[in-house]
Nucleic acid binder design. Structure first.
Lengths: 210, 210
DNA sequence: GTCTATAGATTGATAGAC
DNA sequence: GTCTATCAATCTATAGAC
């Protein structure tokens, strides 16, 4: 087995188990056992459990953030050219569509999306801090774009409504993944396209309310 | 110290720490240490950590569910009398207002509300199963009432939109509590009335969309 | 009912042979 | 790079004196 294989296997398995059982609920022994590698390999390749977590997160979130950023910037650029404010629906779509589509880019990505959804709300400081670091800048980009789109709404209102939107999104993201999570069986077909078609009209109406 | 005091202290402290650090992240030593009681007292009074969790949850959720149920039933009864369908805004308010107002009924309740918000999405089977058992019947009541209010929407759409609504609600609930959770500092004043005023228009518009 | 002491299991991390 | 063996810490739970 090539060294890269071992490293990769650990990351993929960790991603899967973190999504299913949480960071705290996943022991290094569970990861290495399922991955079929030696326990000591984790600390050899990653140094520590925390470092493994960070690597797992970084691997997926950097490319994802790049796509989201690009789409938001494109949207504002187009609007500037036409001298119009961007439509709030388009702003929300630019942020959410890549996020949910991303889960179909690979089976592992599905787990990762579920992991984000659960972690952002979770009580685990270690996990949330890592995610926060990567997601906060994206949220501010989204906030700015939303303010452009809704110039008549007070910023506090926009902030709260984006907060609700994130809640709806995260709660939806944690339904994805191969892992058997709570109420998943109630939703027969969870695919990105269907999720997008359901969530976009809801949050668009919510952002525009009154 | 009276025996009831010890029991009460354990429950209050557990509620606080469960909300802040999660069920898994809270050890019995942390609870008894902060409560100023002996470690063995937990197993004497409650039998096990799981049983303590269940007692902590049951204590708050039974009265809360009773209020929510009463308000939903009252609403449907009134609508029946007037031979009108209940307004979806009133339905959502009947469910959400008691939930968020509840957090101001006592300092402990605040922690509890935060705990619900975090647990429902969390990866911990032990916690989610207990909550599910209590919350599922309430969700079905809400679902029925929402279907009455929106007779022109397909049930699948209503189901998904209630899912998003729960996501927004849970994400908001976890901001409450005395505990210092992530982005709390961004929200200067978190009080039930303000939260209600922000969330009701958002989710009402979302449920009605298109 | 409350305490000390400890059993019994699991954890992340590491030392050292190969 | 991979393995075995193990350390030191932590956990829930319990036995038994008072």
């Amino acid at each position: 087995m090539k060294p890269t294989d071992t490293k990769q296997k650990i990351m993929d398995t960790a991603e899967h188990l973190f999504a299913r059982d949480g960071y705290r609920g996943t022991s290094l022994r569970a990861i290495t056992g399922k991955a079929g590698v030696n326990l000591a390999a984790v600390n050899y390749h990653f140094g520590s459990k925390t470092s493994l977590l960070e690597t797992v997160i970084r691997r997926r979130i950097l490319p994802l953030n790049q796509i989201r950023k690009k789409r938001l910037e494109q949207l504002r650029e187009n609007a500037r050219k036409k001298k119009k404010t961007p439509d709030i629906k388009d702003v929300l779509t630019a942020f959410i569509e890549p996020t949910l589509l991303f889960m179909e880019s690979s089976p592992g990505a599905k787990n990762f999306i579920a992991f984000i959804g659960r972690s952002f709300t979770g009580p685990d400081d270690t996990v949330r801090k890592v995610f926060m670091r990567f997601i906060k800048p994206m949220f501010y980009l989204l906030f700015e774009a939303a303010c452009d789109s809704l110039p008549n709404q007070p910023q506090e209102t926009i902030f709260w409504r984006l907060h609700f939107t994130m809640g709806a999104l995260f709660h939806t993201m944690q339904l994805s993944g191969n892992v058997d999570i709570g109420p998943k069986n109630l939703h027969a077909d969870i695919n990105a396209k269907s999720l997008i078609n359901h969530i976009i009209p809801y949050i668009t109406a919510g952002m525009k309310a009154r």
